[in-house]
Amino acid sequence: MKTTIRIFYWLLALTLAPQIAFAIDSQNLPDAPSGIVTIKTIDPVRLVGYTVGDIIEREVILTIKQPYKLIETSLPIAGYEKRYKGQVIGIELKSVSHTKKEHSGNATFDIKLAYQIFTNNIVAKNAALGPEYLNLINTKNSKDLVKFRIPSLDIAISPIAIFGQVKIENNMSPLRGPLLLSSIKENQWLKLSNGILAISLLGLLYILGQRAWLPRMGGTFAKTHRAIRKLPSTPEGLKQAVSKVHESLNTSAEMSVFSNNVAIFLAKKPNFSPMTGEIDQFFSLSRQVYFEPNAAHNLGANPLRWLQDFTRRCRDCERGLLPETLTQKSGR
């Protein structure tokens, strides 16, 4: 029985011996001699504004000179919750991976660490990733064990939302991303304004246009107005102009218009109603030019100019527009 118990203890001792040997607390080991380990870290650019659920990645590149080499089992273990003064700080090493490259006098380890945040606060607070400790062993002297400290990375953990009622536009915190204003409404207004502007320009061209490139622009009075503008200010020119206006009236009314059936013309073409008085004036001019030279008209010394204005206003009526008020009816 004693023998059995003794054997059990020996077996237990043999079983636990290596574990005891490797379960050395790294922090109690002496630091690695200077010059043995070269470290380079690739840290995230943003060190603030992290909140629960965020994953922060670090890359540590270690170059370890011989005769020391990394005890790879001392690499941090995924799932380990970081503590500060024995308290869980809410940062967990989510994953760790590394690659190793052997060189003639050294070895390079590329260690990738990913931490995940599991904490939050109503105000921003400091936190740190790491430090991590690695153990090195002198291959020429197995009792020469040293540690190497991967420095911690300070970050700031931000709250998910600002506590209390805050006007977001006034929050100038750099932790908050730029506030993007919605431009949908402005874009809609811009399009609407452009549309109105285009229609207005079109309307202006429609009113002022001399050509016939829009519907109802090529009316008979538009053509007559263009023709009259080219006629010379002579008795013969005036005669032609009056004749052309007669043609336009007849074409527009689809019948011969005379001073005694203007009412019929206006009933057929009510757009011309504002021109009633001027149509009567035109017939008085026609009477003088074609039938009764002694008859008087009150159109001043330049009736051809009056006819130009008259046909322009008739053209407006023809286009369904309200003709502008004549400020000066004759003799311009």
Binding site: F291, E292, P293, N294, A295
Partner: peptide, 12 residues
């Protein structure tokens, strides 16, 4: 009161 005939006179 006209001194010349107009189409309107013919129409009448």
């Amino acid at each position: 009161e006209r001194t010349a005939v107009l189409p309107e006179d013919i129409h009448a």
